[in-house]
Write a protein that binds this DNA or RNA. Structure first.
Lengths: 213, 213, 213, 213
DNA sequence: CATGAATGAGTCTTCATTCAT
DNA sequence: AATGAATGAAGACTCATTCAT
């Protein structure tokens, strides 16, 4: 076999390292969701992960770094999901938009743990440029992928009075706000209701493409 | 005549006490906006207020209490503004809705300092029931005042396909999301644009009552 | 009285602050002598001083700063003693030199605690420019005050074959080396013997001015 | 023929082991010189040696042991050099003394790395009897070898007023002090100047045997 | 009332040591 | 014999809170 033992070893070790990183990041999300960003301690994170106290600095150098990497993971997962939809040639513009709604409020990214991560970092972001930078992919996404989808629908449906930019702002704002409801008042908001609310908006804006349920 | 010196004194003292409290709350907002909730210290707050370190515990017993009172002030100011609009008999339903938009993105409540306070506490709210409770007036507001206004418009305009609850959700979510844009990416969002985005939404939903600009 | 209460208060407080600083510096010397520089902890220092753990950062910002201030105190005390001798107009050059020896091995600066401080920092000085800088007054002293005294003796006694620079080097080196003996092997070296050794050197170099005991 | 393969192997292994030890000791010296004793970590030492982190405990059991072995190597190298001179029957007493000066400030033992090791351990020695013990060979050396050389010169030259013990003290102290200058202020002291300073001292003490340059 | 020096519990971080591979 | 990931005790530092003045 061409793969040498040393290569296998290196690969295994590299994998193990990445596994540890992911374990710690997942534990960090849980802790932020459970205790809040400002009450999350290294001891809590490592205990949640079932690992020892010193391991964070081994893999992330510092707590701050771990926090940023956690945000990055959540952010990149979100961006990747959107890009996959945007690049999916089999879908029509409307289908893409529906897929976005499904994704935004789907079980993968729309968990209360991940929402807690988003809002915790947003709360600190004014004071921490590093957080803003990590989240900035978010905006580019909306300005790019979402805008293109909406423009296609507008062109296709002849919605001459609609402005893609404003719909971008509205939709992204709605997702943020509905996520807050999901996070803070889960009794009065759930993922299905959130999808319906978005749908209702698009029914109003693109009546020819979106029918009321 | 009947007001004695001692009573005057007591009143003055009470006033002075309230002034100190407000100074500290204002300083707390500034610090949360500048440094983030988790980095805001008692020393920073008291320095910002130009007061001594020990004074917070004198007036607020604890830091946690000061933080909650700060959130309460921001929250109550917001609720009062809305209630004033809701109870203003001189305004039509549509005028009330317009007034709400003006208020939500007006210079009184929509400052970056106050938005930073909102998002900071929202970020921690999953872990802290006390914060949720303070903010809950917000939801009652929407369920009450806003819902009534919207229902009046629906009834008045014969928008049979519109559902007041969904519009409540959409509008409050939009305000939250647009506020996040104002807080995090002020370069691409300002208060006037936010108002326009809201207006555009109502044009789509209530075409008979809201005309495009 | 011109001195106001507020002024007295400020003075008292300033004094108290300086007292705390000195207490901590003295405790630091004791700990360095007892445990070595690398084993000296904040807990040990504050316990030695009978104060609380947090007080060092209140008065010195950091452990490193406390250590440097400790070195500075020892260094400045030494320099001041020499300058006093150098500027004493009542003494002849030879008397000054004798006074220097008395001072170098006198009970004020030549305690084992202070010697331990000197050697601890010298041991680290190659790696820490800050320590070298604090000690640099030492060299200027030798180059200035000591050199002048020696030149006066050379000129006065007609010691044409003597070179002041070399004697400066020899004497300062001897003081260092004898101090090491006092620190490390106190059984075979004491302050009186050290003085005798120095004296014997000057007897050899300036036979007309220094008689054997 | 008689030496079996297994014996050769054992010997080779023993050699390899000794090589590792020496590599680690050399690396330790470099690190102490570069970073100071208190900042030298196992990670730094093993990296400097190009070896793995776990190897120190394999060969030296503990860090403390490695440090002591490092001091021992430096100390023994010094002692051996002196003993070689002391036992060299071809040299006269004066030639031996000259050889000692050459050796003390020669390129083998008088490197800044080794001087840093000496001073680092001296700084800690008051607190650590183990260090003192390792260095004690030094004193025996002076009391023995050096004293004999000096007594020979005194007897030979009829320097009735000279006391060998005091000269021992002076010379060893000078070597220590000049070494400190070489370590801390290399700009104003070099090995040649140090030799000259020593020479000048012996010119003053033994004028019949040492001529000015 | 107001001050700010002092406290010490809580936290992050470092690093010698261990041990499975 | 050698590796380096993992551990966790120990240390420096922070900061809400207290209290003598």
């Amino acid at each position: 076999m061409a793969i040498t033992a040393s290569h296998q070893k290196r690969t295994k070790r590299a994998d193990a390292k990445e596994v540890r990183r992911q374990e710690l990041i997942q534990a960090t999300m849980k802790c932020i969701a459970r205790s809040g960003l400002s009450n999350t301690t290294m001891a809590e994170i490592t205990q949640e992960a079932g690992l020892s106290l010193g391991i964070v600095n081994l893999h992330f150098q510092s707590k701050e770094n771990l926090l940023q990497e956690t945000l990055r993971v959540v952010s990149e997962e979100y961006i990747e999901g959107w890009e996959k939809i945007g690049h999916n040639g089999k879908l029509s513009a409307v289908e893409k938009l529906e897929a976005c709604i499904e994704f935004d409020f789907g079980p993968k990214v729309c968990t209360r743990d991940k929402l807690a991560v988003w809002f915790s970092f947003w709360g600190e972001s004014k004071a921490r440029p590093a957080y803003q930078k990590i989240c900035s992919g978010h905006d580019e996404l909306a300005d790019g992928t979402l805008r293109r989808i909406l423009q296609d629908i507008i062109d296709e449906g002849g919605y001459v009075s609609r402005n893609a930019d404003q719909i971008v702002h509205t939709y992204t704002a709605m997702v943020t706000g509905l996520s807050l409801d999901l996070l803070v008042t889960p009794k009065t908001m759930d993922r299905n209701l959130a999808k319906q609310v978005c749908h209702h908006y698009f029914v109003a804006v693109f009546p020819g493409h979106f029918a009321s349920y």
